[in-house]
Design a protein around this nucleic acid. Sequence first.
DNA 1: TACACGTGGCT
DNA 2: TAGCCAAGTGT
Length: 293
Amino acid sequence: MTSPEERLAALVSEWYTEHARDLPWRAPGVSAWAVLVSEVMLQQTPVNRVLPVWREWLSRWPHPQDLAAEPAAEVIRAWGRLGYPRRALRLHECARALVERHDGVVPRDVDALLALPGIGSYTARAVAVFSYGDRHPVVDTNVRRFVARAVAGDADAGPPRATADLAAVEALLPADRTAAAVASIAFMELGALICTARGPRCADCPVYAECGWQRAGRPAATGPARKVQKFAGTDRQVRGLMMAVLRDATQPVPRADLDAVWPDATQRSRALAGLVDDGLVHQLPRDRYALPT
DNA sequence: TACACGTGGCT
DNA sequence: TAGCCAAGTGT
């Protein structure tokens, strides 16, 4: 007897073994630290942009101790243009926490992982599953979309519901922990390559025949459209421009150099204050600024 | 719950 | 072209 849930997991897992991308953090023997770094870099960031930076980081800092020993400025510079540089700062803090609290070893326990800076519900479980092979539901945007379509029969996932989302994915996991880990990465990969947000490639989908959304006649999305983040003209754009100036500088930068990136003085002040408040920028004497030491 | 938080490629 | 989208987290 095969339940519909077991069948979904089996079909997607079989598809994965044949069609998975050959990504370096999936290679056998890759350390938990390397997996953790990849997961943080991949937060809201496309694979192709992460690849070169991840290789550089793991070559430079193969263990948490190596990153922990660096000044924050080096870490932020090495983050380059990956975006959301607070992630770099948190990864640095995470490395130091690993050294202080876990002897430099990435913990296997989800609650211990959750207690680390920059590690949330997704990343904690991703590390426990993809690195240690344990059985936990791993819920990212790809998995939520796949479950919404294949199981619920909706066009898209609704707003995140942490507890319900975890339960919905848990219900799809095979009992065996190794099979569950494969299913978890397979759901993500299917969402990334086939069950995509725009233009899903349903003709190539291993679940086509049992997909709830197909069976329902591919109904259109119902709820309000997900609001897309504005960027042009926002503080985030100003922060990004200022960070680019500071990354490229070899000496502390006068305020005037940061002011040059944006015309509106009120917005400049707010952006810079935010960067200082976040710990991404240090204010020095004589109104000069630099990346944190 | 809703919002802030970078960057760049794609349609 | 302008908007959409990409393996989320913290507050």
